[in-house]
Simulated scan of single mutants.
Amino acid sequence: MRFIPAGSFQMGADNWYPEEKPARRVRVDAFWIDETPVTNAAFAAFIDATGYVTLAEIAPDCRDYPGLLPELAQPGSAVFEMSAGPVDFAAPDWWEFRIGANWRAPLGPGSSIKGIEDHPVVHIAYADAEAFAAWAGKALPTEAEWEFAARGGLDGADYAWGDELAPGGQFMANYWQGDFPRDNQLDDGYLRTSPARTYACNGHGLYDMIGNVWEWTADWYAQPKIERKPKGACCIPANPRGGTRGGSFDKRALARIPRKVMKGGSHLCAENYCQRYRPAARYAQPIDTTTSHVGFRCVVRSAR
């Protein structure tokens, strides 16, 4: 883990997506954070020690999902597959619910984590991340902690390394190159996840804070409040948190399932779609939804 001293920073951004507004000054207490996302090897150690079963390995209860076809009420998870032609971004077709897909079989039956033990673990639900953190004696970061750490000391910069996506043509993170979702030019050599220390660390010595996999935070999703800018250091909000749980399973609107904030973007973020490979970027993820591009890392809140 790396130690992050207490400090203040500009959280959010005004020049990208609406959910990141407004840019505001906040401060956080000191904490430790994992150098990398939790890897397949680390998660396997947790499973071996506890016998824990992840959400993707458990068949959903049809009573919780009105309208779910019985044949789909089986253990599985969403796996990305490249589109063959033009797509309607309003109705994405690049996700396939694949029966048998989970953290140990990331592409479904017949796949495994052999040879990718040092890649971030994926197909992780929020409860799975919480269970690992509790076992490890850690916790999930708040959105503010995560963003402060991701910035690496570069206050207000667009990216974790500055204001240029690929300075001097150098790739700084694992993201999509080409026309998403049908043409990945693989300029960085990776179609899916990459080893957790493939790219240079940020100013805090942290790897993969941007791209590779989205990462869960402990905060419930809410739109940031627009408040007056503080006039002094004493007025800067300390250790801000997200919204309340809200939402519920609803027969008329499954979109109301509670959501947590995810940060960092993933290998599926692209210049033509979802430019969320930035510290300020955020996404509302249903707590029961697992995919092939969602992982996590942990923190410990204590002084050096």
Score class of each variant (00 low, 15 high):
53 V>L: 04
185 Q>K: 13
109 P>H: 02
219 D>I: 01
101 A>D: 08
290 T>V: 13
50 T>G: 00
219 D>V: 00
170 Q>C: 13
8 S>Y: 10
101 A>G: 02
132 F>C: 04
8 S>W: 08
177 Q>E: 14
80 F>T: 03
284 A>Y: 15
91 A>W: 14
295 G>I: 01
185 Q>A: 15
84 A>I: 14
114 K>E: 15
209 M>K: 15
206 L>S: 03
270 A>L: 12
187 D>P: 09
140 L>F: 02
181 P>K: 07
167 P>T: 15
33 I>G: 04
18 P>G: 06
275 Q>T: 12
72 L>S: 10
23 A>W: 02
120 P>C: 01
134 A>G: 08
195 P>I: 00
20 E>Y: 03
137 G>P: 02
150 A>S: 08
210 I>G: 06
30 A>D: 10
246 G>T: 06
116 I>A: 12
67 G>P: 11
167 P>M: 11
230 P>C: 06
142 T>W: 08
87 V>R: 09
168 G>P: 00
6 A>H: 10
115 G>P: 03
186 L>H: 08
142 T>I: 02
205 G>C: 05
205 G>P: 04
73 A>C: 09
134 A>K: 10
114 K>H: 15
53 V>G: 07
36 T>Y: 10
235 C>F: 12
44 A>F: 13
249 F>V: 03
241 R>I: 04
74 Q>H: 08
30 A>M: 06
